[in-house]
Design a protein around this nucleic acid. Structure first.
Lengths: 258, 258
DNA sequence: GCCGACTATGTGGTCTGACCACACAGCCTA
DNA sequence: TAGGCTGTGTGGTCAGACCACATAGTCGGC
């Protein structure tokens, strides 16, 4: 007769997490109905709802009303939205300084670019013999596609920024690391408002936009040229330069406790 | 007469986020009571509770029952818990492959070590003139303290792993980047179960533990010796070596789509 | 026989009201 | 004055009800 000191919604959350770990629930599966879950676990429906709400915000489930096979809470495991919400709110609550967001993005994206270039290099070296089927060129098609879209005349600032965000995210996606993809998406979302505000502090938007596009081309070229160090440096200059220009991050030189 | 298509709990969440962004709510402040918030926003108390539950899991508020100044929902902005929950559940739901968690940790922690070493270097170079008061030695005291604790005889495996996790986290804390701190905590939490299981696959725990301790000392020494490249390499070898040994991450060589 | 409209059913979304345990603040008694 | 006692407000929980919605099945007209 030990009492469960956890709150009711924590019981529900732990139960679902356990089902996930045991493989009883997989992406695409449907959760039992809220009323069923409530009676099964001996808690109220509102407690079940609180747990499902958490899962929804964290990007684990998607809820649909109505009837049929698509209704109910479905496991999706899309971490991007959850990471974005987490970081956005933490920035709002002053738990994440904007400067730390920028610096983390710098670290991750330079690493991504370098890794992509190394992947290109490996693929080129090993192409003659087909003994390494897992070594293949990363898919940079979408990256180039987005760069082409950014060259379209008459783009508004917001459209350009959206394409810019998509390009940077597409680099992470080409790399294939789900954690980095979600984190990069979250980092970008968290400072999206600040990025927009920063555009207003630019001396000349056309000049900056042209420079950004040229830098993007350079980054992609360095990756395709299998130049890890070059790609790393270009991404570093691209990101830190832009944030310095918009005065988003106070001092880019400070590498510690900044 | 425009209808608000958002769900009720999203209205509450957006309202609180807006208050945070406008500075009407800061860390340490108390949220209005659930009943007050419900009537003010024209929603039911259960919807308010769902929103607060989300904020709690994301690490933005801490709730306390009872009366007095410590009761109610208080803004705390502690992202570690939220990041841990997010990553742990995403691993459980197969949204985050364990290999990606490990690789991301590798990228972040090598960058942290290199940055710490650079900070030591900068502090040493600029120590003669006091013109750069923001350039100071990172606080590595806690790191060394944890290493000493890991040398204590008779430590159980779990105790050792806990100290190991604390040491790696203390490096990030010395670096001061809140985003990296929270992310590292989350990454570690997400694979904690796998790390424990991996210990059982080791040939000899005493040997491995001794090697890990030595590697820790080496990393800290490289940082204190202001050797960024050395610190980077030692951390890389330390992490990838351990995960390879425990067969946690299948192939450390694969740098792309692995 | 075929196709449309209609209805039954089950889902999440929401609100309301009620009760509990808890913690503090103030009172009240010894 | 010191101790316990009670009032009050907090979050935590549950139960019940209703809604909008989407599907699946039925029934009707053609």
């Amino acid at each position: 007769m030990t009492v469960d000191e956890r709150r009711a919604w924590e019981i529900v959350l732990a139960h679902i997490e356990n089902d996930l770990l045991l493989g009883r629930l997989k992406p695409g599966d449907r959760l039992p109905g809220e009323r069923v879950l409530a009676t099964d676990l001996g808690v109220g429906r509102s407690s079940v709802r609180e747990a499902i709400r958490v899962l929804e915000v964290l990007g684990l489930v998607r809820t649909n009303v109505g009837s049929g096979p698509t209704a109910g809470a479905i496991i999706v495991a899309l971490p991007g939205g959850g990471m974005s919400a987490l970081m956005r709110l933490q920035v709002a609550a002053q738990g994440f300084p904007v400067a730390d967001i920028v610096k983390t993005r710098l670290v991750l994206e330079t690493a991504v670019a370098a890794e992509l270039a190394e992947a290109v290099l490996s693929a080129a070296l090993l192409r003659p013999d087909r003994q390494h089927p897992d070594r293949q060129d990363p898919d940079l098609g979408r990256c180039a596609q987005l760069l082409d879209a950014m060259d379209a005349p008459g783009l508004t600032e917001d459209e350009f920024l959206a394409l810019d965000a998509a390009f940077h995210l597409s680099l992470a996606e080409a790399c294939g690391n789900q954690v980095v993809i979600a984190t990069m998406a979250g980092l970008r979302t968290a400072i999206e408002g600040y990025v927009r505000a920063g555009v207003g502090r630019l001396a000349s938007w056309p000049d900056t936009s042209a420079r950004l596009r040229a830098e993007h081309r350079g980054i992609l070229a360095a990756i395709e040229a299998a130049d890890p160090a070059g790609a790393h440096g270009l991404v570093h200059a691209h990101i830190s330069g832009y944030y310095a220009e918009t005065r988003l991050a106070p001092e880019q030189n400070r590498t510690h406790n900044g």
